[in-house]
């Protein structure tokens, strides 16, 4: 099975638009929306949710007031400033480490499970989809990403699909790492702005750090063609192929308003180029060996 993650480093480069278009072009794919704290793919793919699974993240500390003698030991021991002066827990700061429970001489602290979001198994007009919604301020976004990826894998096995297309989150931290570990390839969608270039370099660094092959797609290339040259130069110096360029165009917004992928919405220049990029990506995917598959995060 092949897994492709579409990421961007910087948000707003058109990552989801392109991943959704790929979903409609791939014949045998499961779609996984791993941008779990701002999932948008469903706005275009309109999945029908078949199953909702509770996602429990890390435990959180809970203090039994009737046992607590206000000695303050827990507060002193907590390294995350998650216990307030009046010995109550700030659940947004609590990392669930369990130290307070350990140090409390009165047995007043217990660690309790908390629901950190919902994961969904769905079907779309292009095939099965795994997605999720993370609760506000949750710590466990990386864990939820891994959970969604496992669900996608289950769906792929069940429906006999041989590819998973993953819409990844922005950034370089835990959720990005969880969305790319063990995939066959990442495609980075960037734009020719100084921030786009800066973020591209960092996110390619993350892919390199985990030994994952990467290709690049430049969106809105006509905003600044000098910067496009800089990106192309950077990529060729680092052995990363630029698989295509897309113009600044209102097709994505118009398609989005109609809840359609760009290729469903129009046959124009933009869609034609997206199709070309997909063909390139598909070819690359089949060339990469599955050597990284075993490392997929649990």
């Amino acid at each position: 099975m092949k897994q492709l993650t579409v990421i961007s480093g910087k948000g707003g480069t058109g990552k989801t638009t392109i991943a959704a278009a790929f979903a409609s072009l791939a014949k045998d794919a499961v779609i996984a929306d791993c941008d779990v704290d701002a999932a948008d793919m469903h706005l275009i793919l309109q999945p029908e949710i078949l199953e909702t699974i509770d996602f429990t993240g890390l435990d959180v500390a809970s203090i039994d007031e009737s046992l607590c003698v206000q000695c303050g030991k827990c507060k002193d021991a907590c390294r995350f400033d998650a216990i307030r002066d009046d010995i109550t827990i700030n659940i947004y700061e609590c990392e669930g480490c369990g130290v307070c429970e350990y140090v409390c001489p009165e047995g007043a602290v217990s660690m309790v499970e908390r629901k950190a979001g919902d994961a969904y198994l769905s079907k779309t007009r292009f095939g099965p989809m795994a997605h999720a919604r993370l609760g506000i301020g949750e710590e466990a976004s990386g864990k939820l990403v891994s959970f969604v990826r496992n669900n996608a894998r289950t769906l792929a096995e069940k429906h006999d699909k041989d590819m998973i297309i993953i819409d990844g989150p922005p950034g370089t931290g835990c959720s990005v790492i969880a969305s790319i570990t063990g995939v066959d390839m990442v495609m980075v969608v960037t734009e020719p702005s100084v921030s786009g270039i800066h973020d591209l370099e960092r996110v390619l660094g993350v892919a390199g750090h985990f030994n994952i092959p990467a290709v690049v797609c430049i969106n809105k290339y006509d905003i600044n063609e000098e910067n496009v040259l800089l990106i192309e130069k950077y990529c060729s110096e680092n052995g990363v192929e630029v698989v295509g360029k897309l113009p600044y165009d209102d097709t994505p917004t118009k398609a989005m308003l109609r809840e359609m992928t760009v290729v469903e919405y129009s046959d124009g220049e933009f869609s034609r180029r997206v199709k070309e990029i997909w063909e390139n990506v598909r070819r690359h995917l089949h060339e990469t060996s599955g050597h990284t598959l075993l490392t997929m995060a649990k």
């Binding site: 948000g11 993370l134 301020g137 922005p170 950034g171």
Partner: peptide, 14 residues
């Protein structure tokens, strides 16, 4: 602030 709604956002805007 970073984008999103997860823990780094809460740490930033808290």
């Amino acid at each position: 602030s970073p984008p999103g709604t997860a823990c780094p956002v809460i740490t930033s805007v808290g």
